[in-house]
Design a protein around this nucleic acid. Structure first.
Lengths: 163, 163
DNA sequence: AACTAATCAACAATCATTGTTGATAACGGC
DNA sequence: GCCGTTATCAACAATGATTGTTGATTAGTT
């Protein structure tokens, strides 16, 4: 993630104006947790700058992704997650709380050279793991409850489960 | 994918009745392409058994997935894809036509033992590749057009692009 | 044959996301 | 500091996939 100032610069270069709303989004992205959905970002933005519409947040996020400063992740969690980690990494989706955890690429080994034989060409490859995140895993191992209660956490209640 | 008869048997064992509608879905799944969305399955089902509602197809697919005979795949293509390939494999999503291609696991190498250090636990790991499928790749290499026209094919028009 | 489950049609609702519109605000080049 | 061009706003509608509902009808299974 680049600094808000760097992003502002990029926007100016792209002939996009640097408005307070956009700056607010830039700042929120830098501080917040790793993979927020648009709703969450909006909630944070409104805290510092009220009256910013959700509509505008969607807009800014889209612009950021078009500039390559952000990656839109659809991991089947119901809403798109915005990933500002620009380094090589993979993801783990927590089955219990829906959190998305970054998995540094160096902890994994992924090769798919043989795939070319199928006649396809691969531009990106991402490893999507499912399991339990660290906090949920810790909680589960001690309390040993939840056999399978969590179906799919909705975006509403998805405000940082571990806080 | 098990045979329609085998699936019927499983349904009976689960105290689920084997209706013509369900059988029709079973049969369609065996014959059709690899990763249909519910709408596509419905279209095929209606061909052999009219008056089957989309509602019912969703229902049957859900039951199949609850029995573990089917995997619901959300690859960010807009709709859930139903995967009846029960062997170890990964997926490639074609950026151009939206097709989902099976990639046999033996063509790849995926390891993530080091991930345990993060305190998380992994139950499944799937490699999601993006690129171009074989037909699109062949077409693209000769005609060399499409710089980036296809934004996101919608389900409606997504009836087997290569037929 | 009877009990129960499944299906139907027809509709409404959900949820994330994008489009629209007309009015207001404000960035940035001069 | 002015002005033209963009951005943003509120408020609303629409999309598209999916699930819920309801009351009536059909049809497996024992």
């Amino acid at each position: 993630m680049r600094s808000p100032e760097a992003l502002a610069q990029r926007f100016r270069e792209a002939n996009l104006k640097v408005t307070p709303q956009r700056m607010a989004v830039f700042e929120v992205l830098g501080t917040g947790p790793g993979h927020p959905a648009a709703e969450q970002i909006h909630r944070s933005v409104v805290e510092k700058l009220p009256n910013v519409s959700l509509r505008t947040v969607y807009q800014v996020l889209r612009e950021l992704s078009e500039l390559g400063e952000l990656v839109m992740l659809d991991l089947g969690t119901g809403a798109v997650r915005y990933d500002h980690n620009l380094t090589q990494h993979h993801h783990l989706v927590c089955d219990e709380c829906g959190a998305v955890v970054d998995i540094p690429a160096h902890l994994t080994e992924v090769q798919y050279a043989g795939v070319a034989d199928l006649g396809v060409s691969v531009s990106t490859a991402e490893l999507v793991m499912r399991g339990t995140c660290s906090p949920c895993h810790a909680a589960g191992s001690t309390t040993a409850e939840s056999t399978k209660p969590s179906s799919q956490p909705t975006m509403q209640q998805l405000g940082d489960p571990h806080a």
